[in-house]
Design a protein around this nucleic acid. Sequence first.
RNA 1: GCGGGCGUGGCGAAACUGGUAGACGCAAGGGACUUAAAAUCCCUCGACUUCGGUCAUGCGGGUUCGAUCCCCGCCGCCCGCACCA
Length: 874
Amino acid sequence: MAIERYNPRDAEPRWQRVWAERGIFETKNDNPRPKYYVLEMFPYPSGRIHIGHGRNYVMGDVVARFKRMKGFNVLHPMGWDAFGLPAENAAIERNSHPKIWTYENIATMKEQLKLLGLSLDWSREIATCDPSYYAEQQSIFTDFFGEGLVYRKESEVNWDPIDNTVLANEQVIDGRGWRSGALVERRKLSQWFFKITAFGEELLAALDGLDRWPDKVRLMQRNWIGRSEGLMVRFALDAKTAPAGDTELEVYTTRPDTLYGASFLAIAANHPLAEKLADTKPGLADFIAECRRGGTSAEAIETQEKKGFDTGIRAEHPLVPGWYLPVYVANFILMDYGTGAIFGCPAHDQRDLDFARKYDLPVKAVVLPEGEDPETFAVGNVAYDGDGLLFHSDFMDGLSIPDAKEAIARRLEAQDLAGRPQGKRQVNFRLRDWGISRQRYWGCPIPIIHCPSCGPVPVPKADLPVVLPDDVTFDRPGNPLDRHPTWKHVNCPQCGGAATRETDTMDTFVDSSWYFARFASAPGEQPLSKGAADHWLPVDQYIGGIEHAILHLLYSRFFTRALKSVGRVSVAEPFAGLFTQGMIVHETYKDSAGKWLFPEEVEKRADGTAVRVGTDEPVTVGPPEKMSKSKRNVVPPEIVADTYGVDCARWFMLSDTPPERDSEWTEAGIEGAWRFTQRLWRLVNEAVELGGAEASGLPNQFGPEATALRRAAHKLAASVEEDFDRLRFNVAVARVHAFANQFGEAIAAVRNAGGAPSADLAFALNEAARIVTGVIGPMIPHLAEECWTILGGEGLAAEAPWPVVDRALLVEDEMTLPVQINGKKRAELTISATASEADIQEAVLALEGVTRALEGRAPRKIVVVPKRIVNVVV
RNA sequence: GCGGGCGUGGCGAAACUGGUAGACGCAAGGGACUUAAAAUCCCUCGACUUCGGUCAUGCGGGUUCGAUCCCCGCCGCCCGCACCA
């Protein structure tokens, strides 16, 4: 009987229809099975997807399908992060409306995603631009407002002159807008803020409990929150040198122990004192302007020389009366950290040292490294920031750094300056409150009404949602909501007087800070239902790109805590498990004119050169890069589905490369996946042909061939289960390959023997086919359904349980131990798995390889590691 | 500059985190089948070798019966950042 080729073009759409018709991926909240929530970061509907977008969805789908097989009630939803600037830009370009563009993209991308055969619950689909979604968000906003978690302040903001909007600090990359790339300017505006700093301590402490997050991401968040313990120290200013009214300068330090090594104070260029002095000190205004010009990028700062301007002001050392330190304005002090002022201790801080050397200031060491002589120890051009004991420090002499910090804190807390303690312990955070105001149309309106007499008043919940008006134009820069003729004019909900709506909309990061909780609600339920959210959260496995390591993930952690504090949910952490997958990369191609070419326009020749399809025009092949529309190195999912089928694409995406690393998409790779899926199909068919479609009763006895095959199949299920749990898809794929080799050999052996296989072997063949069908189900679900069908499986493969592993089969009767002489492998010993150590030692010494290597010498020692290895030491 | 990570065949990578280094795949070479091609199947595939072995996980040391794994010192790549007081 000739086996038909597996035809994905027929099978894949057919099974997708069956899954959809039976609604098997629609999750019920009252299902009594234990819950499992797997979520991939939802996409922004930017246009069309390419295969590079598919990797994280496929990984999530493997997890979802696997957990379903393991008996969980799995929630695996999908939605659209649909608000944002690109829609407005597209509207401007096409003279259209952001809504039209967005919903068209959603329709396209949804069809493309469906092509991938993902087990998604589309009944819970959401788009953040849908009024039903943002209505709830506005309601949450008013709750936060009531709880004091939202406030308004006049603040200097990052102004993006191209996008005409405010950017969060986090959205400024190298001094430029993260989307437009424009050099960011500073402006003062009245802005709404979320009080993320109120949770700083908690957000930091809870990172320790996120043990299923990558360490890298936790570290990035830890650094971002930036907690430091230090001391606020007030320095008295010498009245003869300071402007009238300025009697003191407060600095923040994490190294108060080095105070005896101080040689200057420095303030930021935009410190109030510096700004005041700028009018009177010749040259200072120019210096401040120069500091502002300096770039804020890492490179710019790295190469920037430390510069200062001596204000002429002198500050008295808090511990040594009569010791005066110069006060500089310096370009390396930041106003928004601490107090915008420091004391410099050159011996123990590299930046201070560079500064001191430039301006010829004293460098006095006060921490002595172990083993150094206090008489001779000196700091050259490298500051000493290591451990040691204090010296040249009066009452702190001989103390360790922590003890010295404690001693000086006590001393300055007790010491009085102008009626207040001169020092105060303080914990500082780098984290700053989250500015959410955006002067844009395509976002969630902030539900506030500004009343001339009552001030800002939240829109009453009964009046929500505040819906975006459709009749807006984008023919002029600025915010269309602001210039809309009627929308913003309303009456104050409190006093009834004429008032105006807030015309700012929310940062789109707000939309994505609670969508995972929204998915918990079944269709028809309240958008954010406490019961449903408490049932489903936290997300058991969240999957997305590393680029969201800080912003989205930190905001979501904050938002969930804030929701908890207003009683909307009971959980604090949204994501119990996080996985950051690598990108899919692809070679780039350029024609002779330097124009980017799509992969399908390029033909590779046997000699390694590349030409344009159907011509002799040479093509330059570039290194693999992230798939991007602009470089045209993209592969559309439709083409892959039409030529090889999506199971091939899925298999290839999971193969070879560990999921957290970047993976290269190649034609050879997808062809390999094609060959293997066909091979699997043949193997299962052959097994059915030889072993029968129906599972027969368990035979009483199994011969060695049947046992070996059963053992391999059960081992496969056991190890792939482990691999899936650890998201090691590449290893799972390798194991399926290895099993297929063994399966193929077993089948060939049966064929070569001729005649019908014995009952035990027939059983083993059928069982192996069933197990491998189960194991591949999460990865290549369409092929699994086809295999399931010819195996006469009950219902759908997608609903079948994970293969039951017979643990007894995993235990070998015999083991083969490598035998080493002095750590080098010299022989192998096959012996009963229950052999004692003495038996093993005896057997080892009898081995030919061992006697030859020993050359008559007696072994000094024999190390037997149970079930692992034997090492004979000579 | 600070912080973190990674270096294993021609390539992607495994190695149960101290126990046979290179599973599995890709590419390559050889063979079988075929009128031919495709498909499929089989073999070879780290280096050297006197065929006994020897050397090999970036380089140099160390700990250990035994090191890709732990420690110290270099070299080279990659990522993050906020000169954070």
